[in-house]
Simulated scan of single mutants.
Amino acid sequence: MSAEQPPDKDHFLYPRSRYRGEFTPENLAFNANLQEFAQKIGYICALETGGKMPSKEAYQRIKELWKELKLSKHGLGIGENQPDGDSP
């Protein structure tokens, strides 16, 4: 019998879910960026809630992360080829 491997620290701290949408390299890359965004937001919220980060700093960090995600979406061309009726 072989001993089980201990869980990888990075996998534990930065879990990734499978992508289940329409596959394109751009969609896959954006999904990874979106998961990373969500993970970082969770950490920032936990730090702010726990009193380890001021609310103003948490807001600024989240705002910067949002800008990065928007740039990623634009750079990957996500949503640019949608018919006019499907855009929000």
Results as ranks from 00 to 15, higher is better:
79 G>T: 04
32 A>C: 09
78 I>L: 11
46 A>T: 12
76 L>E: 02
65 L>F: 06
77 G>L: 06
78 I>K: 02
75 G>I: 04
54 P>M: 04
63 K>P: 00
10 D>F: 09
82 Q>A: 11
3 A>C: 04
44 I>Y: 00
87 S>E: 11
33 N>T: 03
40 K>R: 14
48 E>H: 08
88 P>T: 05
48 E>A: 15
11 H>I: 00
8 D>R: 10
66 W>C: 08
59 Y>H: 10
7 P>A: 11
16 R>A: 00
51 G>Q: 12
39 Q>C: 12
9 K>G: 02
7 P>G: 05
57 E>S: 11
17 S>V: 00
81 N>C: 12
3 A>E: 06
36 E>Y: 07
79 G>I: 05
56 K>M: 09
73 K>D: 01
27 N>Q: 07
7 P>D: 08
62 I>W: 00
44 I>H: 01
45 C>M: 03
38 A>R: 15
39 Q>E: 07
78 I>C: 02
1 M>A: 10
24 T>F: 07
12 F>M: 06
64 E>R: 03
64 E>C: 05
43 Y>A: 07
5 Q>E: 07
11 H>W: 05
53 M>S: 01
20 R>E: 08
38 A>T: 14
13 L>T: 08
56 K>Y: 03
65 L>S: 04
7 P>W: 04
75 G>W: 08
81 N>P: 02
49 T>N: 15
25 P>D: 09
12 F>Y: 07
54 P>V: 01
62 I>A: 08
36 E>I: 02
84 D>Y: 07
63 K>T: 05
27 N>I: 05
72 S>L: 05
73 K>N: 06
71 L>V: 04
87 S>V: 13
15 P>T: 06
4 E>L: 04
85 G>Y: 15
24 T>Y: 09
17 S>Q: 12
18 R>Y: 04
26 E>H: 09
6 P>T: 05
25 P>V: 12
72 S>R: 03
80 E>S: 13
83 P>Y: 03
11 H>V: 00
12 F>Q: 07
13 L>G: 04
46 A>K: 06
74 H>I: 15
69 L>G: 03
43 Y>P: 00
80 E>C: 13
4 E>M: 01
54 P>R: 07
79 G>W: 06
16 R>F: 00
12 F>I: 03
19 Y>W: 13
70 K>P: 01
23 F>C: 03
54 P>G: 08
